[in-house]
Simulated assay, not measured.
Amino acid sequence: MTNQSPLNPDALEAAAKATMGTVYGKLPAEEMHVAVARAAVSAYLAVAQPIVNSVEELDKLPHGTVIFNSLDEAVSKYGDDWYFPGIKHRFATVVSLPARVLYRQTEEATNGR
């Protein structure tokens, strides 16, 4: 097992760019620390946990993806359907959009199913 960071590297790069854009902006010093933190976290989440707005985008997500739908429910994709965690093969659910992607299964992991 490799010792990899649990953080998304693409999201970290986006956060770093957003942070530098804020630092080199023209904000008063007392506002800068909040603005820098907000820019970094917002940019990170936009890449690491994107928003899904359409059924087409939802259908493209791989098996094993976990999302948080607009009804504040976490649901996971199993095959082509969405289920509440721990209730696979019993009751498929309808996903209320928009939804935020919390976890996206890697292709290596999905090839073994």
Score class of each variant (00 low, 15 high):
residue 1 M to N: 11
residue 2 T to C: 03
residue 3 N to C: 03
residue 3 N to I: 01
residue 5 S to G: 04
residue 5 S to W: 03
residue 6 P to W: 11
residue 7 L to T: 04
residue 8 N to M: 01
residue 9 P to N: 02
residue 10 D to T: 06
residue 10 D to M: 04
residue 11 A to G: 15
residue 11 A to N: 08
residue 15 A to H: 07
residue 16 A to M: 06
residue 16 A to C: 04
residue 17 K to Q: 08
residue 19 T to A: 13
residue 20 M to H: 12
residue 21 G to H: 08
residue 23 V to T: 11
residue 23 V to R: 04
residue 24 Y to D: 14
residue 24 Y to G: 09
residue 24 Y to E: 15
residue 26 K to H: 03
residue 26 K to D: 04
residue 27 L to P: 02
residue 29 A to I: 06
residue 29 A to K: 10
residue 30 E to Q: 13
residue 32 M to D: 05
residue 32 M to H: 00
residue 32 M to L: 14
residue 33 H to W: 07
residue 34 V to Y: 05
residue 35 A to S: 10
residue 35 A to G: 06
residue 36 V to L: 12
residue 36 V to C: 03
residue 41 V to Q: 05
residue 41 V to F: 00
residue 41 V to P: 01
residue 41 V to L: 08
residue 41 V to K: 06
residue 42 S to P: 00
residue 42 S to W: 00
residue 43 A to K: 14
residue 45 L to F: 02
residue 46 A to D: 03
residue 49 Q to E: 09
residue 51 I to Q: 09
residue 52 V to G: 02
residue 52 V to D: 04
residue 54 S to W: 00
residue 54 S to R: 05
residue 56 E to W: 01
residue 56 E to R: 10
residue 57 E to T: 09
residue 57 E to D: 09
residue 59 D to R: 15
residue 60 K to W: 02
residue 61 L to I: 07
residue 61 L to E: 02
residue 65 T to Y: 00
residue 67 I to D: 02
residue 68 F to V: 13
residue 70 S to D: 15
residue 71 L to I: 10
residue 71 L to K: 15
residue 72 D to G: 01
residue 73 E to H: 11
residue 73 E to P: 03
residue 75 V to S: 07
residue 76 S to P: 00
residue 77 K to P: 02
residue 77 K to C: 10
residue 77 K to W: 08
residue 79 G to A: 11
residue 80 D to F: 05
residue 82 W to E: 09
residue 82 W to T: 11
residue 83 Y to P: 11
residue 84 F to W: 13
residue 85 P to Y: 01
residue 86 G to S: 12
residue 87 I to F: 05
residue 87 I to K: 13
residue 88 K to V: 03
residue 89 H to M: 08
residue 90 R to Y: 03
residue 91 F to V: 14
residue 91 F to N: 14
residue 94 V to K: 09
residue 94 V to N: 08
residue 96 S to R: 10
residue 96 S to M: 05
residue 96 S to P: 00
residue 97 L to R: 11
residue 98 P to E: 08
residue 99 A to S: 13
residue 100 R to A: 02
residue 101 V to W: 00
residue 101 V to M: 07
residue 102 L to K: 03
residue 102 L to E: 02
residue 104 R to C: 03
residue 104 R to M: 13
residue 105 Q to F: 00
residue 105 Q to Y: 05
residue 105 Q to A: 14
residue 105 Q to D: 07
residue 106 T to D: 10
residue 106 T to S: 11
residue 106 T to P: 02
residue 107 E to F: 02
residue 109 A to F: 01
